[in-house]
């Protein structure tokens, strides 16, 4: 490209503008209108490149392109890595029927048993309870912040919620361990407080701020003209929210909830600390349980690289990966379906 530019300037500079514009006094050269060194006419420079701008444009484009595809590349690489470590084992050596139906997780026995049902049930029950707690809180907070609060209250609340979302999960786990645990023991008169209930509450409180932020964004994206239109027809505040704002923000709200579910499935540290980490099919909120993620986190360090135990933990990873994938896909399908129905 530098060739091109140099060529253009060198060939162009000596060129005289053809013909003189009529009406100009003869003898006076048609110099540049704003002073400075004489330049070629605008229309003779159509093929010039403005060097620095052109180079920066290329650099910016390349960087953005790299940034864009790197996300895809990384996700693919992670999946390939997990699949390489666990997929072959899962498909050939592991008894998948047993894996999904037996609650016996005894990977270090002489004849190891790889039944993941208790772990799956642990994750599912904790996430389910967390969502029962988080969804009403998060939607309520989002509606309050987005539709009712004004001025300073609103700004303060938003900052606080974001702060809450940034709390490290080990802090939440600590709260579960040292505050919720004795509280549950005392309140419900149970022998142990590190239970599905504890982990569910902690996870619910963790997921709520993120869900609130996304749900509030969804509410904010509803054009104000809708609210104005409804208000001008005599709708009350609640009627506006219930009949206009929530239905039009529906997709964003569903996305917020599903993100919370994703967070619940993937959360490790807080769940590990608050759930009791006991391999157990939970039958009530007061049972201890163990989550898939917590199992991987606590056991992977103790396994020999390439051993059966190591590989089965990667199989758990694949399973987690697939579940999150299905949740996202489901969300996508739901949203699209909603779109079609409404149109």
């Amino acid at each position: 490209m530098s060739d091109n530019t140099v060529d253009n300037t060198s060939s162009g500079t000596p060129a005289q503008p053809p013909g003189k514009p009529p009406g100009k006094p003869p003898g006076k050269p048609p110099g540049p209108p704003y002073g400075g060194t004489p330049k070629r006419r605008r229309e003779d420079r159509l093929e010039d490149r403005i060097d620095a701008a052109w180079i920066w444009d290329r650099i910016a484009r390349a960087t953005i392109f790299l940034g864009g595809i790197s996300a895809i590349v990384f996700v693919l690489a992670i999946f390939l890595f997990i699949a390489r470590e666990g997929l072959g084992f899962a498909l050939s050596e592991l008894d998948l029927g047993y894996f999904f139906t037996s609650p016996n997780w005894r990977p270090t026995n002489e004849t190891p048993q790889f039944g993941a049902l208790a772990l799956i049930a642990g994750t599912a029950s904790i996430t389910g309870l967390a969502m029962l707690i988080a969804v009403p809180f998060a939607l309520g907070a989002a509606i309050y912040i987005g539709e009712f609060a004004t001025g300073k209250t609103r700004e303060t609340l938003k900052v606080l919620v974001e702060l809450l979302a940034a709390t490290p999960s080990v802090v939440w786990g600590f709260i579960g361990l040292s505050i919720m645990n004795p509280l549950i023991i005392e309140m419900f008169d149970v022998p142990i407080g590190l239970t599905v209930l504890n982990a569910g509450i902690i996870l619910g409180l963790m997921a709520a701020p993120i869900m609130t932020t996304i749900a509030e964004d969804a509410l904010k994206a509803v054009p104000d003209s809708y609210r104005e239109a409804a208000e001008a027809m005599g709708a009350t505040r609640w009627q506006i929210i219930r009949q206009v704002v929530i239905p039009s923000a529906k997709h964003g709200l569903v996305a917020a909830i599903l993100l919370g579910v994703g967070r619940g499935f993937g959360e490790t540290m807080a769940v590990l600390m608050a759930s009791g980490h006991a391999i157990n099919m939970p039958t009530s909120p007061f049972d201890s349980a163990r989550a898939l993620t917590a199992t991987i986190a606590s056991e992977l360090g103790e396994t020999a690289n390439g051993s059966e135990h190591y590989r089965v933990l990667f199989t758990l990873g694949i399973f987690l990966f697939l579940v999150t994938f299905v949740i996202n896909l489901l969300a996508d399908v739901l949203v699209r379906k909603g779109d079609k129905k409404r149109s």
């Binding site: 003209s225 239109a229 239905p247």
Partner: peptide, 27 residues
């Protein structure tokens, strides 16, 4: 709410609610 039903308003940009035609009319 009563005043706004007695004095209906039409805005500069058409602002139907994102509902069906029928639901808009019945709102």
């Amino acid at each position: 709410t009563q005043l706004r039903r007695a004095a209906g308003m039409v805005f500069q940009r058409p602002n139907p609610l994102p509902l069906s035609i029928r639901d808009n009319l019945l709102f």
